[in-house]
């Protein structure tokens, strides 16, 4: 079950992300769970603490105590900022001190609607045509898709680190780090 998207929206967004970062001989957006990253951001406040900042100092992937999975609690001001960014200002004065803010949830809901309910079933070329026709939304989603593909798996995407292993990137390496030799030689 998605955290915030509807099942239909989840389907459209899955097709969209696979078009943005398609699988070739290596996994693409769908295999990496990129949509779960985005759904996790849109629904960040359905987790406690909200899924905004993963913890530290290490993930456990290279030793150390796994801390990433324990998310940081937010202060009142941080909650204000991230709720406004995600939910929008919704006419609330404390969120509108510099004017109204359109939240990510609204941008996604209306953007996915613009792509059309049949988007997932269209041919690739037609999908691309629609993505180009709504390029602002497409660029927004592409940015998030990159985060979901190559960000830490604790945020919901980059499943099993496939985004990283595919490109030969080690990911977070603390507390191991790199030896002097690994730094200085080819």
């Amino acid at each position: 079950m998605p955290r915030w998207l509807t099942e239909d929206e989840y389907g459209v967004l899955t097709a969209m992300c696979e078009r943005l970062i398609p699988a070739d001989e290596t996994p693409g957006a769908t295999d990496a769970g990129v949509v779960d990253y985005i759904d996790g951001l849109l629904g960040a406040f359905s987790f406690d603490p909200p899924r905004i900042w993963a913890g530290g100092p290490s993930s456990g992937r290279f030793g150390g105590t796994p801390g990433f999975a324990t998310f940081h609690p937010l202060t009142a001001l941080d909650e204000l900022a991230w709720r406004t960014r995600i939910e929008g200002s919704l006419g609330r004065p404390e969120r509108e001190f510099n004017g109204a803010v359109v939240g990510l949830q609204e941008q996604y809901r209306s953007g996915l609607a613009m792509l059309g309910p049949d988007f997932a079933h269209c041919e690739g070329e037609e999908q691309d045509r629609r993505l180009h026709a709504h390029s602002d939304f497409t660029e927004l989603v592409y940015g998030h898709a990159c985060e979901g593909m190559y960000g830490a798996p604790e945020y919901g995407g980059n499943r099993d680190g496939v985004g990283w292993s595919n490109i030969g990137f080690a990911g977070d390496v603390q507390p191991r780090g790199w030896t002097d030799r690994e730094v200085s030689e080819a």
Binding site: G55, G56, E147, G151, A152
Partner: peptide, 25 residues
């Protein structure tokens, strides 16, 4: 503290060390 981490989403995309441009533009 052990709050810092090798986490690009947290530090680059989500303003962990501030300032958040919404709160303090």
């Amino acid at each position: 503290l052990g709050d810092y981490s090798n986490d690009e989403v947290k530090f680059i995309d989500r303003y962990f060390l501030g300032p958040d441009p919404f709160l303090e533009p």
